[in-house]
């Protein structure tokens, strides 16, 4: 296969350092995760940066992994939905999505949750639902679970702020 220059990159994925031989320079981060590493929790809804289903954290920032070439990420630290829970202990955002029925089919959910995690950790969420609706609008949910999503993000942000205060004290 002629395009097969062997290109090797290093990534830390969900805390695990990996040396990855890329078989093709065209591979996006999304297709690397899903089709090569079989981390299929991250979803493909459009492959065009229009739906947010593929959202992951790269060096703590939210990105659409379908728009990012894997080859350009050498050295990056990546968190996917699989890396969020601590063993069987769900991340507060995950737990809040269940409690508030923030999903139906679940296909947009990994992306919604990663966006919410990014939003909260950037200190952007706040406690105004209008603001959360606006900032979560890069993630489409065709099932229309938006009310639950907004409630879940509000609660998780409150919960995490509480924890931070306790940790600081």
């Amino acid at each position: 296969m002629g395009y097969h220059m062997s290109l090797s990159i290093r990534l830390t994925i969900n805390g695990l350092k990996r040396e990855i031989a890329l078989d093709d320079p065209r591979v996006t981060l999304l297709d690397l995760l899903r089709e090569r590493l079989h981390l299929t929790g991250t979803k493909k809804g459009c492959d065009r940066g229009q739906c947010g289903a593929c959202t992951v954290l790269v060096d703590g920032r939210r990105i659409n992994s379908c728009l990012s070439l894997a080859a350009s990420l050498d050295g990056a630290e990546i968190t996917t939905i699989e890396g969020l829970a601590d063993g069987e202990d769900l991340h507060p955002v995950q737990a809040a999505f269940i409690a508030h029925d923030g999903f139906q089919c679940g296909y947009c959910t990994p992306g919604q949750i990663m966006s919410a995690v990014g939003l909260i950790s950037e200190g952007n969420a706040g406690d105004d639902p209008e603001r959360i609706r606006e900032l979560m609008s890069g993630n489409i949910c065709r099932c229309g679970a938006y009310q639950g999503i907004t409630e879940a993000v509000l609660e998780a942000q409150k919960d995490l702020a509480e924890r931070n205060r306790r940790d600081a004290a």
Binding site: R34, E35, H38, L39, T40, G41, T42, K43, K44, T80, I81, E82, L84, A85, L90, Q94, A95, F97, I98, A99, D101, F103, G106, Y107, T109, P110, I113
Partner: peptide, 21 residues
Amino acid sequence: LTRRDGVLKVTGRATYAADNH
């Protein structure tokens, strides 16, 4: 009740068709 498949869906462990290899 909350959804039975809730944990699978929020952890990325729910397998949709294209997740199979």
